[in-house]
Design a protein around this nucleic acid. Sequence first.
DNA 1: ACCCGTGTTCGCTG
DNA 2: TCAGCGAACACGGG
Length: 315
Amino acid sequence: MPELPEVEMARRCLERWAKNRRVQKVIVHEPRVLGRGRGAGLGALAGARFTAFDRRGKNLLLTLQKGGAPLGLWSHLGMTGKWLLRRRSDEPPRFSRVELLLDDGAILHYADMRLFGRLRLVPGGDFGRLPELGALGPDPLRDGLDAEYLARTLGRVKKPVKLALMDQNVIAGLGNIQASEALFRARLNPLRPARSLSPEEIRRLKRGILDSLQHTLKKSQIERLARGAGDIIYVEERKSDRAKAAEGSVSDNPFLVYGRAGELCPACRRTRIVRVIQSGRATYYCPRCQPGARHLSPSTSRPRATRRLSGSTAR
DNA sequence: ACCCGTGTTCGCTG
DNA sequence: TCAGCGAACACGGG
């Protein structure tokens, strides 16, 4: 579920569900979500009241007050983590790992099938001391994106620009999907060394990143509204059958190139989207709209006797 | 049965 | 010392 837009949606939901609510009881079904090794447990949350809901990249930073002192709760959703609201009489959602019983009769469930996500108590609400946040790069939505910063940072990176974008210390919040989407919007080949980008391309990249994040966020909001805008979401995941398809277009791939290998590029409509593996992760792009670093020289323009390759599709 | 997966970390290698 | 990369983690879904 979680790249920046999804985590931001989770932040907004939590704020709506739990702001000024007091935690009455904490139930940990699966201690592994606290991280290996010790973990102070979450017991200290009992009696605390939610006051602030922040986010840095993919990290949720929740602040509570207990006896006049702040208390922090750090939440990272991993691959499949999500926060859900239920009533006490409800059946708990699948893979519920932790329950926070609130003073209004609701329960916040942290559900996470694959258990890659983590919850951790942060004494004093001092998130600055979390090693996970230490070297985090700027969050594009909270901090904006500075072209100067991008140029300076990427200028030192040899690895492919797609991998650089997924580095949380370069930019906080982009993951495998957003990296592909941003590069497509910027018309940049994901395989190019990050430091090979020109100032003009850096500007395109900045726009591509912001546009992709905004677009995905908007899509998430619309989808949420479409299914009732409710506080308690009963639409359970499992109806994976044709039931979902029959329900209409509510659950289509909302992305331009991600997951679209073999489909025609939505921009040029002439070339098929390609899927390649970079460091074990799938990358999607249009070879025509995002040409490789085939520049013979940094010279400005050239006649461009573009010769069309045949092949590719003999169908 | 086999491959794939919206994330991060760890260990090995050059 | 560090960049780069595959594996591991855990559990489905197609």
